[in-house]
């Protein structure tokens, strides 16, 4: 079962903290002494979802591993904005090698720790969607297949953001990127291509696969902490809106993530050994337009030369997710 929401304490577990909850029911992020794994002064854009998601995830992993954690990082925004030589924002041992080899580097660290008998030391690998679903994919699949003791975290902002918003295999259909221009009869990214890496990870029958968003901290922390209590290959994909690449306001990052989940566009679930064991239900269902409209990458679908049929196809994708994962409760609303 997924993270249990606390039913009624004013804001319950919707907010980051809640003074009405017992201390052990509070989030890692609410702690005055959280590790702040990526510290202030990093060069991420205003309102960066990836910087936020990484702190949420790594702070939770640090809390679960008592600070005995090493991170291997793929090339990408997260690496570039956090660590321009000689500065770094990271507050844990952290290594960057290449764009495509982070899973292999992490595997090597885990093996070394095992040999040295340092069983308490845990390893995470992390990268963007490009680094994960495209260029690092071979290493990742190998890491899964060998069931190496690594938690791999993919920060999914749906394109190669660091080099200027190129399409990746995680870019959604119809979204405009620098390499999928809004021209022709079917503008933006194509339909029917791309990869669903959480499902591919499940197909490796690894102990744990989950998705999460920066809009639901408590669920995200629950999943990272749970993954850290398990051993073997684990995969979490975190949905992290990118104001620059999506053309959204910097203050809308969390709202966009919430809408992606509430529309069904990004299904939030967890799976153990290849089987879905929990989904986070939609709380207040919204139509896909509400999610698309604030994003400039979908602007060509609206306005004078609108593409209602494309919007309908995107809605159909969301509806399919809702059906497939059972994202709606009878009655549609999960709290009292």
């Amino acid at each position: 079962m997924g993270f249990q929401t606390v039913k009624f304490y004013q804001t319950g577990t919707f907010t980051v903290g809640n003074r009405l909850l017992a201390p052990d029911e509070r989030s890692v992020q609410a702690d005055e002494n959280r590790s702040n794994s990526i510290n202030s002064g990093h060069r991420a854009c205003q309102g960066c979802g990836e910087a936020l998601g990484a702190r949420y995830a790594i702070d939770a992993a640090m809390a679960e591993s008592n600070g005995q954690l090493i991170a291997a990082n793929a090339t990408g925004c997260l690496e570039v904005f956090s660590t321009p030589y000689p500065e770094s924002s990271w507050q844990l041992p952290w290594i960057h090698s290449l764009f495509g080899n982070a899973p292999a580097v992490a595997t090597g660290i885990a093996a070394a720790m095992k040999v040295k008998g340092r069983h308490e030391v845990r390893v995470v690998a992390q990268g963007g969607d490009g680094g994960t679903t495209d260029i690092g994919f071979g290493c990742l699949s190998g890491m899964f297949e060998r069931n190496d003791d690594v938690l791999y975290i993919c920060y999914d902002n749906e394109a190669y953001m660091n080099t200027g918003v190129q399409r990746s295999s995680a870019t959604p259909p119809a979204a405009r990127t620098a390499t999928t221009m809004p021209v022709g009869s079917e503008p933006g990214n194509v339909f029917g291509q791309g990869k669903n890496v959480p499902e591919i990870a499940m197909a490796h029958n690894i102990p744990y696969v989950a998705t999460a968003t920066v809009a639901d901290l408590r669920d995200l922390e629950y999943k990272v902490r749970k993954a850290m209590r398990l051993h073997g290959a684990r995969y979490i994909q975190i949905f992290v809106p990118c104001p620059l690449g999506w053309g959204t306001a910097s203050h809308d990052t969390i709202r966009m993530a919430r809408l992606a989940k509430e529309t069904g566009m990004f299904p939030v679930f967890e799976a153990e050994h290849g089987e879905v064991t929990g989904v986070v239900k939609i709380r207040h269902k919204v139509a896909i337009e509400e999610y698309l409209k604030p994003q400039k990458r979908f602007a060509h679908l609206f306005g004078k030369h609108a593409h209602p049929e494309t919007i309908a196809r995107l809605q159909a994708i969301a509806d399919r997710n809702i059906r497939k994962y059972g994202l709606l409760d009878e009655g549609g609303n999960q709290d009292v």
């Binding site: 004013q10 804001t11 903290g17 609410a30 990526i38 202030s40 990093h42």
Partner: peptide
């Protein structure tokens, strides 16, 4: 507890949590 605490901080920690810059 149904009160929304309109306009007055009730220490939900959201600002502390959601800042990508630990600011």
């Amino acid at each position: 507890r149904r009160c929304l605490s309109c306009g007055n901080c009730f220490e939900c920690d959201n600002c502390y949590g959601v800042c990508p810059d630990n600011a």
